[in-house]
Simulated scan of single mutants.
Amino acid sequence: MATFIGTGKWPSDFARTTAKAHAEALVWEAEANALYELERRTKESAESTRDALSVDVLAHLDGRLKEILDAAKGAAGTLGGVTTPEAAIDAGGDVLDAWRRLTALLREFRDVRNGQWDVLNAVNPDDDRARMRRWRADGHGEIRSGLDDVPAHIRDVMRSGAFTVEYLAWLAQSGAGYVPTSYEDLQDEATAGDLVDAFAGAEGPVDYSPVVLPPLAPKPAETYAHSRTPHLDRSQPAPAKPKANATAPDRERTTRDYF
């Protein structure tokens, strides 16, 4: 093109040069399309595998959590009332060893909890993720037995997710820690307090039979002196005027008086 603009003539090999450039561009485009398609299919395959195995992954995390809590239970009993590293250092001996053991287990515990929420958020739609964020902010997804009897300072840790050695010791001794294996599993725990016991306070069986009401006496239609029977079929004679059985009220009439 530059040669033509400068001289007014095409170079003798311009067709071959252009064809070669076009062919090379097609090769590059085909490679780019193939890589894009490969990336798309690989991503879909990975997401499909993730979704299919999410229950297994969460079940594995639940088993790993139980192992961590079992290992932490003995150390938690050794701590006694120690809740700070300074107090553990002052106590020394077995108490300090137990604190160190719980500190190491706390890192693994945090990994399990992070993995739990990563998987649940990855395999659920936006609406469910929004609900899970609210439940997590309320402290759900940590224990199965509900939050009503949880000490206030422990519940604060559940809500914040800032796990401490004291919290791990409490959870290990409570025996209630778990990992939800699905959105429905978490929902059951988070909404258990919302369910109403229909039989609460009832003595014996509760009768939920439907109440049968007496039939209503039909009220005859009101027909006035100005009423007319609709003439629906113009090919037939006009119907007779209906016999009046009511008197129009002495007020400005509305559609209710005619229909």
Results as ranks from 00 to 15, higher is better:
81 G>E: 00
58 L>P: 00
11 P>H: 08
20 K>P: 03
259 F>V: 06
196 V>G: 02
192 A>F: 06
254 T>F: 05
258 Y>S: 06
54 S>W: 00
124 N>H: 07
71 A>Y: 03
257 D>W: 09
247 T>K: 11
197 D>L: 11
147 L>R: 03
224 Y>R: 03
210 P>E: 10
95 V>G: 12
241 K>Y: 00
1 M>C: 13
195 L>M: 02
12 S>A: 05
114 N>S: 12
126 D>E: 15
145 S>M: 03
97 D>M: 05
25 A>I: 03
253 R>Y: 01
227 S>Q: 10
106 L>G: 12
51 D>N: 08
209 S>D: 14
11 P>T: 08
186 L>R: 10
54 S>G: 04
167 Y>E: 05
250 D>L: 14
243 K>T: 14
241 K>V: 05
82 V>E: 15
114 N>K: 13
234 R>F: 00
213 L>C: 06
96 L>K: 14
232 L>E: 07
226 H>M: 08
162 A>M: 05
38 L>N: 10
44 E>K: 09
215 P>T: 14
41 R>M: 08
7 T>W: 14
83 T>M: 07
204 G>A: 08
40 R>K: 10
220 P>T: 02
74 G>Q: 12
172 A>I: 10
45 S>A: 11
5 I>R: 14
167 Y>C: 00
258 Y>W: 06
166 E>T: 15
101 R>W: 09
102 L>K: 12
36 Y>C: 14
159 R>S: 04
8 G>Y: 04
108 E>H: 03
25 A>P: 15
199 F>G: 10
130 A>C: 01
255 T>E: 04
109 F>Q: 01
107 R>F: 09
17 T>F: 02
134 R>E: 12
103 T>M: 15
34 A>I: 07
180 P>S: 14
20 K>A: 10
167 Y>L: 05
249 P>Y: 04
23 A>G: 09
206 V>M: 02
90 D>I: 07
104 A>T: 04
193 G>R: 08
43 K>N: 08
8 G>Q: 03
146 G>T: 00
116 Q>A: 01
112 V>H: 06
152 A>N: 00
175 G>K: 04
12 S>D: 11
108 E>G: 14
155 R>W: 11
15 A>S: 03
